[in-house]
Amino acid sequence: MKLFDWLSFGRVSEISPEALNEQLESVQVVDVRTLVEFQQSHIQGAINLPITQFSKKAISELSLDQSIPVVTICLSAHRSIPATRRLKQLGYDVKQLQGGMKAWWNRRFPVVSGK
């Protein structure tokens, strides 16, 4: 990846919390927050891969299905920007959650705690 790809600013495709809540059964959710953040509260079915570990090898170990859209998530839609760029480079149909988990929580959409 190029340096620009790792910058947590710029534009990437996004999905609103409302749209994600409606489409949750038909997307793969990759949460790029730390393990501690993920365990405190995450979206049901999300897979955790912290952005600090976002290598091509680690992504391949997630066994994501390239035929199913991916949504990346972080706390406030900054750390998920480089993850979205990387997955797009690898051929995934990917968007980030607009506003991150803060937006999800503000709408009181369901979350789970623990692993």
Results as ranks from 00 to 15, higher is better:
Ser67Leu: 05
Lys2Pro: 14
Gln98Asp: 13
Leu97Tyr: 02
Glu22Ala: 09
Asn21Glu: 08
Cys74His: 01
Gln53Pro: 00
Trp6Lys: 05
Val27Thr: 07
Gln39Lys: 15
Leu62Glu: 01
Ile68Cys: 08
Ser13Ile: 12
Ile59His: 05
Ala46Val: 14
Gln23Met: 13
Leu90Ile: 07
Asp93Arg: 13
Ser26Tyr: 14
Lys2Glu: 13
Pro17Ser: 15
Glu14Arg: 12
Gln98Trp: 07
Val27His: 07
Arg11Leu: 13
Gly99Gln: 11
Val12Ala: 06
Leu62Val: 01
Leu64Ser: 08
Glu22Lys: 14
Glu37Gly: 11
Arg86His: 07
Pro82Lys: 00
Leu24Ile: 12
Arg33Asp: 02
Cys74Phe: 02
Ala19Pro: 03
Pro17Arg: 14
Gly10Met: 09
Leu87Ala: 05
Lys88Ser: 07
Val29Ser: 12
Ile51Trp: 01
Gln98Arg: 14
Val36Tyr: 13
Val30Pro: 00
His78Val: 09
Lys57Met: 06
Ser55Arg: 13
Arg33Met: 08
Arg33Val: 02
Thr72Val: 02
Gly99Thr: 12
Gly45Tyr: 02
Phe54Met: 00
Glu25Asp: 11
His42Gly: 07
Phe54Arg: 00
Leu7Ala: 03
Asp65Arg: 11
Ile43Phe: 06
Gln23Pro: 08
Ile43His: 03
Ser41Ile: 04
Ile68Ala: 14
Leu35Val: 10
Leu35Gly: 00
Gly99Leu: 11
Ile73Trp: 01
Gln89Ser: 13
Lys2Leu: 13
Leu7Trp: 01
